[in-house]
């Protein structure tokens, strides 16, 4: 008797499990880990306001791009834009929509109180293994007020593939021809010197442990963990302390229409030079993704909301929101998204 009742209970549960309770729209995305905290917040708010569920998996930018290419997700997210060669590998045209900007900061383990000042040349030389001691003349020249110890510099870099590494190496490529030739840019590099650690916490942990260490992490990570970071000389010759304002200002440059742009070594006068956008990637014609028209409309509405009302969640979480001109470009891109050749937002 008992057994029979149990069995019927199971059957009932299975039947209810198979039947969707309500025909709710659920969007699925995957990609970058860097904007994950912000996206979770945005999607939770969006669900509260509009009842559209968004399931975002932070599997890494590369994974997001792969998933979008395989059409297993509705949108991908990446910290590095897909280059022309990569775009050709997609079965159909895709577009990049910038959501927020982030920055990479240089952290160090030195017994000093003020911000260390670094120039692009010195930074490249340190990461190339040319400058090996903290009291090297080139560093002392930039920091005349700081007593620098006669200590070995220990370089700490990311061991896992990362958009942070991409932005950092993209910057070094622009400021050092030697770096460009010897190392290049990428999410993973063949580092000339140093130790690798996994994730921002890994790098920050090793830097904190090893006296004389230098490394790079995302601005939000350094901010929320109170790790001291260096100010970096930008293209216009100003030493810029990384902050949300100076990162937002980095985007104050002429922007291309497709928004596939690198913000590193910015021409902006008060912009921090090691910054970049993070993008959401979708097919230009959403019918290519095998989604219904209704779902496509929901996705476009979500994107529109993210570059407008959603922006207000960025600053409290230490992400740099879009400047108005970046917002205008993003609007134009979202308007260009189609479903079977028909625009979804007019």
């Amino acid at each position: 008797m008992m057994r029979k009742r149990f069995l019927s209970l199971i059957i009932v549960v299975i039947i209810f499990g198979l039947l969707p309770l309500k025909a709710e729209i659920e969007l699925v995305g995957a990609g970058a880990t860097f904007p994950y905290p912000l996206y979770s917040k945005m999607f939770a708010e969006y669900y509260k306001q509009y009842g559209v569920k968004v399931n975002y998996q932070a599997i890494g930018s590369g994974g997001g791009i792969r998933q979008l290419m395989a059409r297993t997700v509705d949108f991908g997210a990446s910290d590095a834009y897909v280059d022309d060669k990569g775009i050709k590998k997609f079965p159909a045209p895709i577009v990049h929509i910038p959501i927020v900007a982030g920055a990479v900061v240089i952290i160090y383990n030195l017994p000093i109180d003020s911000h260390l000042k670094l120039s692009p040349e010195v930074l490249a030389d340190i990461f190339l293994g040319r400058i090996r001691k903290w009291n090297d003349e080139k560093i002392r020249k930039l920091n005349p007020d700081i007593e620098l110890p006669n200590k070995d510099i220990v370089v700490i870099h990311r061991s896992d593939g990362s958009g942070t590494t991409f932005i950092f190496s993209d910057y070094l490529c622009k400021v050092s021809s030697e770096w460009q030739k010897k190392v290049g840019r990428g999410k993973v590099l063949n580092w000339p010197v140093g130790l690798g650690a996994k994730g921002n916490p890994g790098v920050a942990g090793l830097v904190r442990q090893i006296p004389g260490a230098i490394g790079y992490v995302e601005l939000i990570y350094a901010k929320s963990n109170d790790i001291p970071f260096a100010s970096v000389k930008n293209k216009k010759g100003n030493f810029i302390v990384p902050s949300l304002e100076s990162v937002t200002l980095a985007a104050d440059v002429p922007l291309p229409d497709d928004m596939r742009v690198s913000l590193t070594n910015t021409d902006s006068k008060y912009g921090y030079p090691i910054a970049g956008f993070t993008w959401i990637l979708v097919y230009k014609d959403l019918a290519n993704c095998g989604m219904s028209r209704e779902k496509a409309k929901a996705l476009v509405d979500l994107l529109w909301w993210m570059v407008h009302n959603g922006q207000k969640y960025a600053t409290p979480m230490h992400y740099a929101p879009l400047l108005e001109k970046a917002q205008r470009k993003a609007e134009a891109i979202i308007k260009s998204i189609e479903f079977e050749g028909e625009a979804l937002i007019k």
Binding site: G60, S61, G62, G63, S159, D160, G161, G163, V188, G196
Partner: peptide, 13 residues
Amino acid sequence: ASIIANEFPEASS
């Protein structure tokens, strides 16, 4: 094992 764990998630090419 650790190089696979480190680099697989971001490998796209």
